[in-house]
């Protein structure tokens, strides 16, 4: 077999799957987004861009956009900073580090659905431990999953807990690559630990941070579905209804295939922007380095 044909054969399996299960659905969702379709699919009418118009005039959808933005940005910020800090601590190689590492990494292997279940229990007002400790130490009791703004805090806690190990692993690998003499030199200069961390190490790791921000955005936008579904079901009101949860409700609870497809298209466009940003800025950063 000639070397000219082989690469194409090697690519066939990958592209078959990518085209059938990613590109086709993408095109299909564009098509469906212009229709109104009855639940059993026996009626279908063309409505042009009305599905999109309705969505952007729907306060519920606007709320979902806002909530997603807040939830994702807060979770990303928390995860990034906490992980960076923990990675630095782990890098000091204090006694017991392997044990801490193993324990801190575990949530990576745990699913969002289980993370949601575990935290639902901990935050349960009747049997959960969090409320017990809070009322003991602060005299405070909170209905975590059913009141504002605690429901949002609850899903942020469960999400950050689940995603943090991923970031720690990357930061740890990154910090280990920072030359020791760079760290030492700044110490001798008398620069305080704090300045050293934020002025030298954090900027050095910015390519990693950039990569993690993108990966985290994806985790929080999509995997959050399981956490929301298990913990709050989008409530109270639509207070924790993220875009993906709204999409699920419209598609599979209310059977509004056309409108749900329009939501798919919007998500698709957002993710395309993220991909382009990653490609564009990511490349540039690497060059600067």
């Amino acid at each position: 077999m000639s070397r000219k044909i082989i690469p194409y054969i090697l690519l066939i399996p990958t592209f078959l799957i990518i085209i059938i299960f990613i590109y086709w659905p993408a095109v299909y969702s564009f098509k469906l987004s212009f229709y109104r379709i009855s639940p059993f699919g026996n009626r279908m009418i063309f409505v042009g861009i009305r599905n999109f118009k309705n969505l952007f005039h729907d306060p519920d959808y606007i709320t979902a956009l806002k909530i997603t933005a807040i939830y994702v940005s807060v979770s990303v910020a928390l995860t990034i900073f906490a992980s960076f800090f923990i990675a630095l601590l782990l890098n000091m190689k204090v006694p017991g580090t392997p044990v801490y590492k193993a324990l801190l990494f575990i949530p990576y292997a745990i699913s969002p659905a289980i993370s949601g279940t575990l935290w639902s229990f901990l935050l349960n007002p009747v049997v959960g431990h969090v409320n017990y400790f809070m009322s003991k130490f602060f005299g405070l009791r909170v209905e975590w999953l059913t009141t504002k703004p605690y429901a949002l805090y609850a899903i942020i806690i469960a999400s950050v807990w689940k995603v943090m190990p991923f970031d720690i692993i990357f930061y740890l690998a990154g910090v280990q690559n920072v030359p020791d003499d760079l760290l030492e030199a700044s110490t001798l200069d008398g620069a305080s630990t704090w300045t050293r961390i934020w002025k030298i190490i954090f900027p050095l790791l910015s390519p990693i941070t950039f990569y993690l921000v993108i990966m985290n955005i994806i985790s929080f936008m999509f995997s959050s579905f399981a956490i929301v579904d298990v913990m709050t079901r989008g409530g109270p009101g639509n207070y924790t209804t993220t875009m993906i949860y709204k999409l699920y409700l419209d598609a599979f609870a209310f059977q509004k295939t056309g409108i749900a497809s329009a939501e798919s298209v919007i998500l698709f466009i957002i993710m395309t922007i993220v991909t382009i940003a990653y490609f564009y800025f990511g490349e540039r950063r690497v060059h600067y380095q």
């Binding site: 659905p25 299909y28 994806i218 598609a251 991909t275 990653y278």
Partner: peptide
């Protein structure tokens, strides 16, 4: 282009 496109969530309906 598909790197950040989890079809099972973004395009779940189609």
């Amino acid at each position: 282009a598909t790197l950040f496109l989890p079809a099972e969530t973004v395009m779940i309906v189609p």
